[in-house]
Write a protein that binds this DNA or RNA. Structure first.
Lengths: 209, 209
DNA sequence: CGCGGAATGTTCATGCGGTCAACATCGGGC
DNA sequence: GCCCGATGTTGACCGCATGAACATTCCGCG
């Protein structure tokens, strides 16, 4: 795993970065709950408390992983959309793009379950204060991509955000049901059926608007 | 909280039950991650290890809470559907029922965030073996309710399960985004918009089938 | 009626994780 | 060349899960 952000160069050289990479690996392997300070430090070969020079604690480490994971998710969606063949009909093209983005979303979730869960699971580990209020989903590119695709699909009834959130709900819920919910361990065939049905619902919802 | 299942009557009298109730309370207050053996035991006034006479460990306690939460969710959905006025047109009635079930679902999630999360969050606490494979979503009444409502709505193209899962994905994803996802802290007005948009998508998906 | 085993709880101990305070070390600027 | 601050380390404390050994209580059987 290459460096993620700029780094220092003192004793270790690049501890913050190294810890983030280790933490991302941990999340990839076992989801956010396995992102554990001591283990990250261990993997980097440093004492547990060293991390406190770079992070406010486990919480901030997790938040950093989350940002990373969200970026990778959006990248995966864009790659999926880029692979999608274009179409002459702009509406058809827009529908295809929407579908491809959704498939990219769910595909990422299925391929990197741990990382995906880390991207959204906002479970504050016991007694953490509620974070400051921010404009809701502004910084989440995955959402923006869906909302844009829906907008391109035509009249979203002035409710661009709501429509985007609906589509997002569908792919997010599907991903979680498949990953850690009751649909995990669904045979591949039926899983594809479910994914197809959900995509159909999303597209139908966009059309019907 | 009244008893949930049959109980013993030895030393404590009804320890298993008392522990389950305490655990459900904990989940209600702070979600599954706050369902912690020691605290449940503390609340019941018993030593931590006493719980091991009744549960295999924290995991089983959580599973019990989960079953309880799922039942309550389905109950809430049925209550919501029962409150919904009927309609002469059977299709309209079916659509109304589907909508009511979905609102009941999301409403339960919003009203009892912790319990709702406990109902589905299947995060095994580090290194638990994968549970035995079972018929996927058989025992989850919430899902069955949605699938039935969709079926009543007409031709589900032989893909009853898939269609149900799609609807389920939508309400589940919506609930989680609202609860612990990036949509939490959305002002009430916009939240209603998002819920409405999602329901519209579900119904449109059912129509378009 | 009373005894003995099983069911139920308790105490003690181990190991892991988060976090803090005090201490050690290194590196670069003066 | 020295000193301060940035970076790490040690040691300690606390909560949690869990297992082993021990204590207590109940209940059925003789």
């Amino acid at each position: 795993m290459a460096g993620i952000s700029g780094g220092k160069n003192y004793h270790h050289g690049d501890l913050r970065n190294a810890l983030v990479c280790a933490a991302v690996d941990l999340a990839t392997e076992g989801g956010p709950e396995r992102v554990v300070l001591r283990e990250a430090a261990r993997r980097v070969g440093v004492s547990p408390t060293a991390a406190y020079r770079h992070f406010d604690g486990r919480g901030e480490l997790l938040r950093t992983v989350r940002a990373h994971a969200r970026t990778r998710l959006a990248d995966a969606m864009e790659r999926a959309a880029a692979r999608e063949p274009g179409a002459d009909d702009p509406v058809l093209a827009a529908e295809r793009r929407l579908g491809a983005l959704c498939r990219g979303y769910v595909g990422f979730a299925v391929e990197h379950p741990g990382l995906y869960r880390a991207a959204f699971q906002t479970v504050r580990p016991t007694g953490t204060p509620v974070p400051a209020a921010r404009p809701p989903e502004a910084e989440i590119r995955a959402f923006a991509l869906l909302a844009e695709a829906l907008e391109a699909l035509g009249r979203t009834g002035g409710r661009r955000c709501a429509a985007g959130a609906a589509a997002w709900s569908a792919v997010h819920g599907l991903s979680l049901l498949l990953l850690e919910g009751p649909l995990r361990r669904l045979p591949a065939q039926r899983r594809d059926d479910v994914v197809a049905a959900t995509l159909a619902m999303v597209v139908a919802g966009a059309r019907a608007r």
